[in-house]
Nucleic acid binder design. Structure first.
Lengths: 214, 214, 214, 214
DNA sequence: CATGAATGAGCGTTCATTCAT
DNA sequence: AATGAATGAACGCTCATTCAT
């Protein structure tokens, strides 16, 4: 029936995948892990079936986001590596990674828990490791890092802002900074005197406020 | 024990309530916030209706657990307050609170996010605040605390071990300690020289491993 | 074991039964058939178990209310029988019975559907039949009744106000009268000229208002 | 039928929607408002999810049936308007509407209690009103109607057969006619002499029979 | 390939009914 | 006899996943 029909390119498939990832990123960031795949599909402007064609299940989609996340982190690491000192590089990278987490409700838990599922993500992770390994090594040489700290600690420490960020994102979107700096200073103190903590401590939730839905 | 007053009625009800709370505590700790009340009922060996008789809804059950959690934290704070120095007290309390979190998947997010729903919980929280306020003040007087740190920061800092603990609970149940000490040292460094980090850094998840279910 | 124990009297049992029936009558009238037996028990100030001791199940309780209803209807019929003409008697009784229905959300459907379950109720029903049989016969002799109308039609006709009453009870508690008189006039027209319908017609429900829950 | 426009997609969806509506109509008619959507789904031979895909909730399904009901009533009104006299038209319409109610357990309460939820239903209701307004006006001009009767009374009067119909549907499916005619004669008496009531009066329920479930 | 209709297990919750106290 | 704690089937509804179109 389709004699002259040109073979449909991968082009649109690739485009659809990007649409889905973008939509998922947006929705997961805004509303956390409990967005439905119908929501994602609708936001992306495709059918649910298309989402399932690209990602075997919801977890795979989540894992797909990790790739996107790694890309941003690699950029961040490249900027960090370009800074004059290891100290500054490490501090900038950690704060940047935490800022990313603080603006993304789902990935603060999901990214670090999931393994890279694709060769691409794995490659990105290794590139990230190489970049930050260099930065950490330089900082160590400068005597700027807590003893025993290794490049493998970088993602772990970054993830620790998650619980604070999740709690405060909606009401005090900058509250995470106080604790982020506390952590960064613990890993790699600033050059001079250790300054007082910035910002305000997190007020306890008022009596009677509801448990946030998962 | 209380004179001759008979309270014939509640014997089994009290026992069942305890069974439910125990079951809930266990399951929430193991599997996080998304256990169903059917699961809780089954684990407790009662019908769902019984769970609903004791707790109007799921949030109320969670709130009940929060109360129990606060009781433990108050005990911990009392022990901390009894230590000779504020420094030791603060360090012991923070590490103890983090240890509790590290063994409880749900409460690491729920406790700090939820308000105390009951007068009892509120009272416990205030008592906790008073105890730790004293400890922090003593530690400040000793010059042992990071400048700007306040008692309100205590729960926030405690919660920060959550993301690490959730990631490692099943495979490396002690991995949280490395990062817990990093945090505690940041808030309130030990008396002498700052030692190297303890333990091993968190290895990145191997390629291809699945995203853990929420 | 209970040698000297006095046999517990029926006295309180009888009182409890009355409490239950009163509570049930009140709640069913106000809120229809979907009150729970816990509500009834609470309103009556007894335990649920006590309700079940007196009435094997919810339907039996409903049937129990029929007895109470019949008592009121018998009184009404006695007053009707005392009126000078059969016409007046029949009209007064029908209007009175309809008024009862109009103030009782549940019984408008339940009473006429349920059979008398107790000897007492059966006796009351027969007494009612006898009284109204006399009234109808007198009215027939006066030529005041639609031909073919029999005493057996009395409860049927009375029940017909139910659908109107249920629809209007909350908003226009007197709206039923218009249609009650229409029916009564159809069965037994007033002495003189047939007057116009009284009151206002029932406005149709406004667009968009919800279906009332059953 | 509509030119050559192909609408390839909905073939099965349309069929399923029809299956659902048919099943719902049947079950609601037989058993009243408290059929579950699982029942409807099973009767229709589809999954529950499919029902919820077509109708956001139970009320919406009910509203869908109301639309179908209005369609029938409009047809009935059109036939009534075509009759030579207003008297005949009004009588035929009222009897027809009552007959519909007598064969449908749920709609006797639902249709008249619910507002039209859709623009379609609203339009149908208005069309119905216009048609019957004309019929009533003609009948009034003929002097055939009870004074004060208005088109707004038409649905109210129609609904009054509900309580009788619900009681008798299963055992004496024609018992409603006696009371329907009583009502219709009250609104709009037949041309000649008022005949005796047709049929038999409703026998009281035998002692001991159970209350029918709601 | 893309679509979105269909599926059904599972959720939180209710309530008529039973039974240990 | 009275109580109310316990039960569990059933409800309305959701959503990850499959599959006919």
């Amino acid at each position: 029936m389709s004699t002259t029909a040109v073979r449909p390119l991968r082009a649109d498939a690739v485009r659809n995948r990007a649409l889905i990832v973008d939509a998922a990123r947006k929705l997961f960031a805004e509303r956390g892990l409990d967005v439905t795949l119908h929501d994602v599909a609708e936001e992306a402007g495709v059918g649910v079936g298309t989402v399932y064609r690209r990602f075997p299940d919801k977890d795979a989609l989540l894992a797909g986001l990790v790739t996107a996340k790694y890309e941003t982190l690699v950029e961040l690491a490249e900027q960090a590596a370009a800074l004059p000192t290891g100290r500054e590089g490490l501090r900038q990278y950690l704060l940047g990674a935490m800022q990313l987490r603080s603006s993304d409700r789902s990935l603060s838990t999901a990214v670090m828990r999931a393994a890279p599922q694709t060769a691409e993500a794995l490659e990105l992770r290794e590139r990230l490791w190489a970049l930050m390994g260099g930065v950490v090594a330089r900082a160590q040489a400068e005597g700027a890092v807590r003893q025993g700290f290794t490049p493998d600690d970088v993602p772990a420490v970054s993830s620790m802002i998650g619980s604070i960020a999740d709690r405060t994102r909606d009401e005090h979107p900058d509250a995470w900074r106080r604790y982020a700096l506390l952590l960064v200073d613990a890993v790699c103190p600033p050059a001079g005197e250790l300054p007082p903590l910035v910002g305000e401590p997190l007020a306890p939730p008022p009596a009677g406020c509801a448990v946030a839905r998962p």
